[in-house]
Write a protein that binds this DNA or RNA. Sequence first.
DNA 1: ACGAGATACCTCGCAGCGAGAGGTATGCGG
DNA 2: CCGCATACCTCTCGCTGCGAGGTATCTCGT
Lengths: 118, 118
Amino acid sequence: MTNRKDNDFLNGVPELLILRLLARQPMYGYELVQTIRLTSDDVLAFGEGCIYPILHRLESEGCLASRREEVAGRNRVVYRLTQAGRKRLETATARWEGITAAVGRLLGGGSDGSPFMA
Amino acid sequence: MTNRKDNDFLNGVPELLILRLLARQPMYGYELVQTIRLTSDDVLAFGEGCIYPILHRLESEGCLASRREEVAGRNRVVYRLTQAGRKRLETATARWEGITAAVGRLLGGGSDGSPFMA
DNA sequence: ACGAGATACCTCGCAGCGAGAGGTATGCGG
DNA sequence: CCGCATACCTCTCGCTGCGAGGTATCTCGT
């Protein structure tokens, strides 16, 4: 109401996290959503409408493989990382680290002025 | 070619960096663009079409104050942070740190499984 | 027995933001 | 004198995450 958005502020991050979590162990969509929300203490709270499309896209790109599982009459689609997915995770991680490092440099940057027209 | 985009991957970050740089010292738009690009070794390279609108918006929101400067026949609009801007910088910084911390936790997270359905 | 809520999957449309192209003007170096 | 760097600006496009909406089953409290 007061503010248009409350938590936004990211980009490509959902994909990175999905990749990373699936590298650790196979999981299903709903579990990923909860895990991200719980582990981050609600700082990161991607809706299912954000996660599922990414899952489908990553699978169609060969980064994930899925397998249906029947647990207590409930249908789960469990995803695991493929080799291509592992590769994708590496580049995504590197990118993220590069960005946070750069932002950190700008943020923490000493009292010295800008390198432009020094 | 291969990939549609080469460097995207952020959100709200430009605003944060502008705020932070202006907290250090007053600067003009073009200088901000160059400083961010140079300091980050081209990792972060926001175009002018990204920076100027943010500058205008932040000023209209009272976070920045501008002053025209005539240097060698060249017109510069120098911005400085207001008190409100300082406040905004604080919350934006806190937000960014919260997010990177959360992502780091997810990324580095030990071998222990998800806290969901432990 | 029944309804609410959690589990589990899915899709669609909106809105915000950054990217990039395009546009103006001046000063300086080759 | 042409082009590049400086310096400002605006507009449109496309991507992506958000929220709302939709289905179905199982469980727990009442």
